[in-house]
Amino acid sequence: MAVPKRRMSRANTHARRSQWKASVPTLVACQNKACGQPKPPHVACPTCGQYAGRRAVTPA
């Protein structure tokens, strides 16, 4: 098993972790004109239950 020989410096640790961050979720407006709520793309709307212009699921 590989074990580091020396402790990694704080600068190197921060440089490695600088790219490790959360991304903002992509949201699009619902195609239903009456709804228009933000929802993830390619997913049925959780508010009105429509996907691609037709009823896909019953809204929660």
Rank of each mutant, 00 (worst) to 15 (best):
C45M: 01
T58L: 10
V24N: 14
P41M: 05
Q37S: 14
A2N: 07
T26M: 10
A29E: 12
A56H: 14
L27C: 03
S23D: 14
P59G: 03
A15R: 15
A44T: 05
T26V: 15
P46E: 09
V28Y: 10
P59Q: 05
T26L: 12
T58C: 03
P38G: 03
G53I: 01
Q50M: 10
K33A: 12
V3W: 08
M8K: 10
R54M: 07
P40Q: 11
H14M: 11
G49D: 02
R16S: 09
P40H: 07
N12C: 04
A15V: 05
K5M: 06
W20A: 13
T58S: 13
T26Y: 09
C30V: 00
R17V: 08
C48P: 04
T58V: 07
R10F: 05
G49M: 02
Q50P: 01
A56M: 09
T13A: 07
P25T: 06
M1Y: 06
A15M: 12
R17E: 14
A34E: 15
P59M: 04
K33F: 02
R55G: 08
R54S: 11
H14R: 12
S23C: 09
P25D: 12
A15G: 13
V3T: 08
R16V: 13
A52I: 10
S23G: 06
Y51F: 14
P25Q: 12
G49S: 02
Q37L: 04
C35G: 00
T47C: 07
A52K: 14
R16T: 11
N32M: 09
Q50A: 09
R10Y: 04
V3R: 08
R10H: 05
H42I: 03
R10D: 06
A44G: 09
R7I: 02
T47N: 10
T13Q: 12
P59H: 05
T47R: 11
P59D: 09
N12H: 08
V3Y: 06
C48L: 04
C45H: 01
V43M: 11
A11D: 11
N12I: 00
G49Y: 00
R7M: 02
Q37N: 12
S18F: 04
K5E: 08
C30H: 03
M8Q: 09
P38A: 02
T26F: 09
P40W: 02
V43Y: 08
S9Q: 01
A22G: 13
A44K: 01
S23T: 15
A56L: 10
V57S: 07
Y51C: 01
T58F: 08
G53V: 00
Q19C: 04
M8Y: 01
R7K: 08
N32H: 08
R6N: 05
C48H: 01
G36I: 02
C45P: 04
P41Q: 07
R16Y: 14
H14E: 13
K5A: 04
V43C: 10
P40N: 04
A11R: 12
